[in-house]
Simulated scan of single mutants.
Amino acid sequence: MGMFSRFTDIINANINSMLDKAENPEKMIKLIIQEMEETLVEIRATAAKHIAEKKSLTRHIQTLEKSAANWQEKASVAVAKGRDDLAKSALIEKNKRQSEVEAKQEELVQLEEFLAAVQDDAQRLQDKLAEAKRRQDAYLLRQQSAQVRLKAREKAAVYNIDEAISKFERYQQKVDEVEAQVEAFDMTANQDLSSQISALETDEQVEQELAALKKQVANG
Rank of each mutant, 00 (worst) to 15 (best):
K21P: 00
L91W: 04
N24A: 07
D127C: 09
N24T: 06
R59G: 11
G82K: 07
N70H: 15
T46W: 01
L115Q: 05
T63P: 01
Q123C: 08
T63R: 08
A52D: 10
Q144C: 01
Q136K: 11
I32C: 06
S67T: 11
R44E: 13
Y139T: 05
G82E: 11
A52W: 02
S99L: 14
Q126R: 08
Q110F: 01
E131W: 02
E131L: 13
K81A: 15
A80H: 14
L108H: 06
E42P: 01
A80D: 15
L115D: 00
G82I: 10
V79C: 05
E113P: 05
A52E: 08
I51Q: 13
K74R: 15
Q123P: 00
D137Y: 07
A103R: 10
K88L: 14
H50N: 10
L57A: 01
V77F: 10
K49T: 12
Q119H: 12
Y139S: 00
L141W: 08
V118R: 03
A90H: 05
E112A: 07
I33Y: 00
A45W: 05
E23W: 05
T46N: 09
A90L: 02
R59L: 14
T46V: 09
T58P: 00
L40N: 06
Q136D: 07
E65Y: 04
R135I: 13
A80T: 13
M28I: 01
E100H: 06
Q123N: 15
K54S: 04
K55G: 08
P25F: 02
L64E: 03
A47R: 06
E100I: 00
I92S: 12
P25R: 00
N24K: 12
S67D: 12
R44L: 12
D84Y: 15
M36E: 02
A138S: 14
W71D: 03
Q144F: 05
E42G: 11
A47W: 02
K88G: 10
A75Y: 00
I29L: 01
K94R: 13
Q123E: 14
A117T: 12
V79H: 07
K94Y: 04
K88Y: 13
D120S: 13
E106I: 09
K104V: 05
R59C: 07
K94C: 08
Q105V: 04
T39I: 02
D84P: 04
M28S: 09
S89W: 06
A69L: 09
D84R: 14
H50V: 07
L129I: 10
W71F: 15
K81T: 15
K94T: 03
A122G: 08
S99N: 15
L40K: 08
A117P: 01
K88T: 14
A68D: 02
M28N: 02
I61W: 00
L31D: 12
K133D: 03
R44I: 00
A47Q: 08
K55M: 08
Q119C: 07
K81P: 05
D20G: 05
A68M: 00
E73C: 05
D137A: 15
R124G: 03
R59Y: 09
Q72K: 12
K55I: 08
F114Q: 07
V79G: 02
R44N: 15
T58Y: 03
E107W: 04
S56A: 15
K88C: 11
R83K: 14
E112I: 03
T46E: 11
G82N: 10
A80L: 14
R97V: 04
I29C: 01
L91R: 09
E131C: 07
L140Y: 10
K133P: 03
S89L: 14
E100Y: 07
